[in-house]
């Protein structure tokens, strides 16, 4: 028995049909937001991270009906190729993108971090990424990318 829920996704209002026991991840992907990835469906890997009312959450662990009325931001809401966000550019330039499967989740986590803490320490960057598994990069260049993004955003007076 589907429930109608309203979400504002990347700034656009969407009315969607969700099953009572359906995860936000599944709902988003069904609605075409395939940039939100499936890695484990258990809240362990972070590849499904989205912003929910501004906070990063594992969308695989969120029941869609429970977030009726919420604002959701996916990685494409942070930036697209036409208008990339400094975080995305910095990750690219620092070599922090290999297979790219974890990258949408990383972008969300980094975006949330820099919004609340524009000048994070190395430790704070690492801890903000504590729920993002990456098997390709060993994290070094991801952290370098976030550091680079923070520095550039400070310089340019850019607010996340």
């Amino acid at each position: 028995m589907a429930i109608e829920i309203t979400l504002t996704i990347n700034g656009r209002r969407k009315i969607l049909q969700a099953e009572p026991g359906e995860s936000l991840l599944k709902l988003l992907r069904k609605a075409g937001y395939v940039e939100v990835k499936t890695g484990c469906e258990a809240g362990d890997c972070g590849s499904c991270l989205v912003l929910l009312d501004g906070r990063p959450v594992n969308s695989c662990m969120v029941l869609a009906p429970s977030v009726d009325g919420a604002e959701v931001t996916t990685v494409r809401g942070v930036g697209t190729q036409r208008a990339p966000h400094p975080i995305q550019i910095a990750l690219v330039e620092a070599g922090g993108v290999q297979c790219g499967y974890c990258t949408p989740g990383i972008v969300i986590a980094a975006y949330a971090l820099l919004r609340s803490n524009p000048t994070p320490s190395e430790r704070e960057i690492r801890e903000a990424l504590d729920g993002n598994l990456c098997r390709c990069t060993g994290y070094e260049k991801i952290i370098a990318g976030v550091r680079l993004a923070a520095a550039r955003m400070q310089e340019e007076g850019h607010h996340a």
């Binding site: 972070g46 906070r55 990063p56 959450v57 594992n58 662990m61 801890e127 729920g131």
Partner: peptide
Amino acid sequence: AASTSLRNR
């Protein structure tokens, strides 16, 4: 108890 994103839930 849990990662940053899980602590938000």
